[in-house]
C-alpha cells in the first residue's frame, strides 16, 4: 500500500472514530465564554462616594476532568468613574500603565456549576501584586444556554500595597469592594 493510500485510510478511520468518540469527548471539552460583564468598584471618601465601571472584561472557562479553570481579565484603564481626573489618578495610584490588566483566576469543581450559589477561591492579580480571596460567594442564574453570575469581591487597597489616594488631605477607605455582574455562555 502506498504512503498516500495509508494516510487516506488513516484519515478515514480517524473520521469514523470521531463519530464514535464524540459522546465521550464532550465532557472533557466544555468551554465557557464571558459574553457580557460589568465590574464596578466602589470607593468611599469622607466627602463623597464614587463608583467606577468597566464593561470591557473578557473571560473564559475550560472544564476538564471534573474541574473548571476560569480566567477573567479587564484593562484597568477601562474603568470609568464619571470623572476623567479621578480615573487618571486611579490609573496612577494602581500603577495601571505599568500593570495594565486586572486578572482574576479561579477553579471550580464541574459539579458546582449547576448550583444556585458558587463559592470560589479567587486569585486576583492587580497593580503588580497578587491577592487571594477565599470562599467568595456568587449567585448563579441559568437562562437557557447562558448563565448569569453575580457577586462582590471584598477587595482592599492594602492587599495590593496601594496607598489610599487622598483628596483634600483626606484618604479614601481601604475597602474597595468590586461588584461583579457577568453573563457566561457554554460553547
Amino acid at each position: 500500500m502506498s504512503i498516500k493510500k495509508t494516510m487516506t485510510h488513516r484519515r478515514l478511520l480517524v473520521s469514523v472514530l470521531l463519530l464514535f468518540a464524540v459522546p465521550q469527548l464532550l465532557p472533557g471539552a466544555t468551554q465557557w465564554v464571558l459574553i457580557k460583564s460589568s465590574l464596578t468598584y466602589h470607593i468611599s471618601h469622607p466627602l463623597h462616594e464614587a463608583d467606577g465601571v468597566s464593561h470591557a472584561a473578557r473571560g473564559k472557562g475550560i472544564c476538564q476532568a471534573g474541574e473548571c479553570n476560569f480566567l477573567v481579565a479587564a484593562p484597568v484603564k477601562t474603568f470609568d468613574s464619571g470623572n476623567s481626573n479621578r480615573d487618571l489618578h486611579m490609573l496612577e495610584d494602581v500603577r495601571g500603565a505599568q500593570f495594565p490588566m486586572v486578572i482574576v483566576r479561579f477553579r471550580l469543581p464541574r459539579a458546582s456549576l449547576s448550583a444556585a450559589m458558587i463559592h470560589a477561591n479567587l486569585e486576583v492579580q492587580f497593580a503588580g501584586h497578587t491577592a487571594e480571596y477565599k470562599d467568595v460567594a456568587f449567585r448563579q442564574v441559568t437562562k437557557g444556554n447562558e448563565v448569569e453570575v453575580s457577586g462582590t469581591i471584598p477587595m482592599k487597597l492594602s492587599d495590593f500595597k496601594i496607598p489610599p489616594p487622598q483628596l483634600l488631605f483626606m484618604p479614601i477607605k481601604n475597602e474597595v469592594p468590586v461588584r461583579v455582574d457577568t453573563t457566561w455562555r457554554k460553547m
Binding site: 473578557r58 476538564q64 476560569f70 480566567l71 481579565a73 505599568q98 500593570f99
Partner: peptide, 19 residues
C-alpha cells in the same frame, strides 16, 4: 490546554503590555 490564558482572551498585546 486546561488553563485559559490572557493571550487566549484576545486582548491586543499593546493592551496587556506594561509601559
Amino acid at each position: 490546554a486546561t488553563q485559559p490564558t490572557l493571550q487566549g482572551l484576545g486582548f491586543p498585546t499593546s493592551e496587556i503590555k506594561g509601559n
